[in-house]
Nucleic acid binder design. Structure first.
Length: 587
RNA sequence: GCGCCCGUAGCUCAGUGGAUAGAGCAUCCGCCUUCUAAGCGGACGGCCGUUGGUUCGAAUCCAACCGGGCGCGCCA
């Protein structure tokens, strides 16, 4: 918000200078004005490098341009010393600004006004988006890689909602086909063995230990009622029963992670004609052909590196054919865009699917596929590959049990999807600054503690007395009514000592940039930015806390700073809400 | 061999064309009579994989190469 205001001031200064012919050959504001935060404090709170960008066109030295622009900024009443306490031109042509208290106070007022909605953006323009993610096979437990996909998708969905998109979340269920038959055959063998009829476990497919406990659940539910079935029926029934137990297990785990899908799309519903339907469309559009006994998609014509099989010579259709049918369904559902999140090991399928969508006559650019890289688990720096319980891969539920939902969400949300994650189990459990997830929550709890201290009766354990609140309910209510009228009441929050003011300013600057962070994160599909942003806010609060007492003898200062603490608490709660990490009142 | 992703401090990572490349951890040194020290401050630490190019300016864009991961099925 502050950046925007400053941007407008610089823009109108440039326009003024251009109009008066002060910028040489420049006849219009041809480059965007970008306000940035300099790294070095001596470069001011905010800076603008637009003069360098105009230099080429103006055929004038950047520093001269910056000076001309400065003259016009000076004459702008909005840029008074209350708002911008100081600004100067620095080589090679930067304009550096020092902020006063005015805009900071305005920002605090705005945060209070918008409350839980502070940071919400309308970049989404209410566009309808379908996000499909996790989409794991119902043939075993979710592992940590699914966890990453799940957390990323969930954060992205929360972020998109906050950024003004109309979002639906869907899980595509591969609940039919070869892998389900495999599951059925293996579960049938285990089922018989567990019911007293020793049966050899079929080779290949899923390791026994990965489905054994699910078969136990099937037995708990159905007892031995499938025992009299023949092989075909047994496999079929056990496949159904086992996959439903597994699906339920996955659903529950996802719920514990704070993930809730609007819809579960079952692949098996596509095999009653929908798949054949897309094959017809391909044929009609002349994008398929028969060869070597199989039916092929002419995907090479459509940008893929090779053609792909739709129906095998054995007669059954491929995964791609079903996926094409699934996407035909998606496109028929009147969305403005589709986001799909896959594990990076599936990236080979992307061109095939895009080609299929194109062959169906849809615009593949409405579909965005985001790939998530692998998660490398470690413990005190040593790599952890095998599950303690299952022996194969580390399951998501094990990690959840060990480190808890909040740490799992934070660490899986924090990095960019295209980077592999190094997830240290010991670090995630630590309750200290080393663990950012904890540190951010601690900052929120600290805000709550300060507010409690000021607004609730205080039990002094040493003197064994109960002291009345520092501020009465009425005083606090009056203050909240006051700041709706004028942001001036926040001005006493700021100290005149420049060193102390610097930390106060830094906190407000961090808070007020939340809407811009939300917008940028949404545009770039990077919810992880917000996780890091949350850390910045927490850090700024801690620094503020060290130098600025909130509860003092001066009521105006106390009220203003309590307002600042409330604003901080609100921003932390809002950003944690997007990441899906809880914001505790006390720790 | 081809395609995608990645290479930044000892470790984990930010940095989507701007000033002297930043955080956290680790190591070392300071700071509690006060709202949560579960904290804060300081020091140490870098040929941004390499080489070219684009331009006023490159960790950032382009090309080639080197190193690592993944994928290249009538599997899903």
């Amino acid at each position: 918000m502050i950046e925007q205001k400053l941007q407008q001031i610089v823009e109108s200064a440039i326009d003024g200078a251009v109009k008066d012919g002060k910028l040489g050959n420049v006849t219009e504001r041809s480059v965007p004005v970008v306000i940035e935060r300099p790294r070095l404090p001596e470069h001011g709170d905010l800076a603008c490098g637009v003069a360098m960008k105009l230099a080429g066109q103006a055929k004038t030295a950047p520093i001269k341009i910056a000076e001309s622009i400065s003259e016009y900024i000076k004459s702008n009443p909005d840029a008074n010393s209350d708002a911008i306490s100081k600004f100067n031109v620095a080589p090679p042509g930067f304009i550096n600004f020092q902020l006063g208290k005015r805009w900071l106070a305005n920002s605090l007022q705005q945060i209070h006004e918008r409350g839980a909605d502070f940071g919400r953006s309308d970049v989404g323009a209410n566009k309808k988006l379908l996000i499909e993610y996790v989409s794991a096979n119902p043939t075993g437990e979710l592992h940590i890689g699914h966890g990453r996909n799940a957390v990323f998708g969930s954060c992205l969905a929360n972020l998109f909602k906050f950024a003004g998109f109309d979002v639906k979340q869907e899980f595509y269920l591969n609940d039919t086909g070869a892998q389900i038959e495999q599951l059925g055959a293996q579960a049938w063998a285990l089922y018989q063995t567990k019911n007293g009829k020793a049966t050899e476990y079929p080779e290949g497919g899923y390791p026994e230990e990965s489905i054994s406990h699910f078969v136990d659940q099937v037995i708990a539910l159905h007892k031995d009622k499938f025992m009299q079935l023949n092989y075909e029926e047994g496999v079929e029934q056990l496949a159904l029963a086992t996959k439903s137990v597994i699906l339920e297990d996955q659903k529950q785990l996802l719920e514990t992670l704070g993930i809730h899908f609007d819809s579960w799309f079952s692949e098996s519903t596509l095999h009653n004609g929908k798949v054949e339907e897309v094959l017809d469309v391909f044929a009609k559009n002349n994008f398929s052909y028969e060869a070597e006994g199989a039916l092929w998609l002419k995907s090479k014509e459509l940008g893929d590196e090779r053609d792909r099989v739709l129906r095998k010579s054995a007669g059954n259709t491929t995964y791609l054919a079903a996926d094409a049918a699934y996407h035909k369904d998606k496109y028929s559902r009147n969305f403005d865009g589709f986001v799909t999140i896959w594990g990076a090991d599936h990236h080979g399928q992307v061109p095939g699917l895009r080609a299929a969508v194109k062959a169906l006559g849809y615009d593949p650019d409405l579909m965005e596929i985001i790939l998530t890289q692998i998660v490398n688990l470690s413990r005190d720096g040593k790599s952890v590959r095998m599950s303690k319980r299952r022996g194969t891969v580390v399951t998501l539920s094990e990690v959840m049990e060990e480190v808890g939902k909040d740490a799992v969400r934070y660490y899986l949300a924090e990095s960019s999807p295209q980077n592999p994650i190094a997830f240290d189990l010991e670090l995630a459990k630590k309750t200290s600054r080393e663990n950012p997830a904890f540190y951010i929550q601690y900052a929120h709890a600290r805000c709550c503690a300060i507010l409690r201290r000021a607004l609730e009766p205080y039990v002094n354990t040493e003197k064994q007395t109960t002291e009345p609140p520092v501020l009465s309910e009425k005083e606090w209510a009056d203050f909240q009514a006051e700041f709706k009228k004028s942001a001036d009441v926040f001005l006493p929050a700021f100290d005149s000592d420049p060193a102390i003011f610097a930390d106060q300013k830094a906190l407000v600057m961090a808070l007020q940039s939340f809407p811009a962070e939300v917008r940028d994160s949404a545009i770039n599909r990077q919810p992880g930015r917000l996780a890091r942003y949350a850390f910045e806010v927490a850090n700024a609060l801690q620094k503020f806390y060290e130098v600025s007492r909130v509860i003092t003898d001066d009521k105006d200062v106390t009220k203003a700073r309590l307002g600042l603490i409330m604003a901080t608490k609100q921003v932390l709660a809002n950003v944690l809400g997007i990441i899906g990490v809880s914001a505790p009142e006390r720790m």
